[in-house]
Simulated assay, not measured.
Amino acid sequence: MNIFEIIITLAISLGAVVWGVNIYHQKGTWFLAGWNTMSKEEKATYNEEAICHLFGRCVVFCGIGAFLLLYGSFNQNDFILCSGLGIIAIMVILSIVIPKINIKKYRK
């Protein structure tokens, strides 16, 4: 890996982890797709703390997955690349499915 690849890998993954921690602590939610365009009345129907905890965890794990994906890609290691891609896919699916399954926890 050259220095540019290292910088790109660390910047993207650390950026996602930092953003995920901020979301977990209910900061930076204005940058979440769908949440920032939702009306105040519709936002009031959600348990914002529970949603932020779920999405924060998912974004942190997506940052870890992005690190593995980029590291595997730059080093031509398909196993690490696929592991990172799998983590990202699982986190995206869980962030959609979990609020639908456990409505009482994420809705008021």
Score class of each variant (00 low, 15 high):
52 C>M: 08
22 N>L: 14
104 K>L: 02
14 L>D: 00
4 F>W: 01
78 D>Q: 13
53 H>D: 02
92 V>N: 11
17 V>K: 00
48 E>S: 09
2 N>Q: 07
22 N>V: 00
30 W>Q: 14
90 I>L: 15
79 F>L: 12
6 I>T: 11
49 E>H: 07
21 V>M: 09
95 S>D: 12
63 G>I: 05
85 L>N: 13
47 N>C: 05
48 E>D: 09
34 G>D: 13
85 L>S: 12
6 I>L: 11
26 Q>T: 12
77 N>Y: 06
105 K>N: 03
74 F>R: 08
59 V>I: 15
92 V>L: 15
49 E>Q: 10
60 V>M: 12
48 E>G: 01
78 D>F: 12
52 C>I: 06
40 K>E: 15
33 A>H: 08
78 D>A: 11
72 G>A: 06
15 G>D: 02
41 E>M: 01
77 N>F: 04
16 A>Q: 00
26 Q>H: 07
25 H>Q: 13
38 M>A: 11
14 L>M: 08
99 P>N: 10
64 I>T: 08
101 I>D: 05
91 M>W: 04
18 V>I: 14
61 F>D: 04
1 M>H: 09
21 V>K: 06
25 H>K: 15
83 S>R: 00
24 Y>S: 03
23 I>N: 00
43 K>L: 07
62 C>E: 13
19 W>N: 01
2 N>K: 06
48 E>A: 07
101 I>G: 06
75 N>S: 11
28 G>S: 13
13 S>N: 06
4 F>R: 04
86 G>C: 11
31 F>A: 14
7 I>A: 12
46 Y>M: 05
108 K>I: 13
15 G>V: 08
14 L>K: 00
101 I>Q: 03
46 Y>R: 05
74 F>T: 03
63 G>F: 04
30 W>N: 11
15 G>C: 02
106 Y>N: 05
63 G>D: 01
34 G>W: 14
32 L>T: 02
58 C>L: 10
68 L>G: 15
35 W>T: 07
48 E>I: 10
30 W>A: 14
35 W>P: 05
62 C>W: 00
24 Y>M: 03
38 M>D: 10
39 S>P: 11
38 M>H: 09
30 W>G: 14
66 A>L: 11
97 V>N: 06
7 I>V: 15
74 F>V: 09
84 G>P: 05
48 E>C: 01
58 C>W: 00
99 P>I: 07
107 R>H: 15
24 Y>N: 04
11 A>Q: 01
72 G>V: 10
95 S>T: 09
105 K>I: 03
96 I>S: 13
104 K>N: 10
53 H>T: 03
89 A>I: 11
108 K>R: 12
13 S>E: 09
103 I>E: 14
63 G>E: 01
70 L>Q: 06
50 A>P: 01
68 L>C: 15
40 K>C: 01
107 R>W: 15
106 Y>S: 03
88 I>D: 07
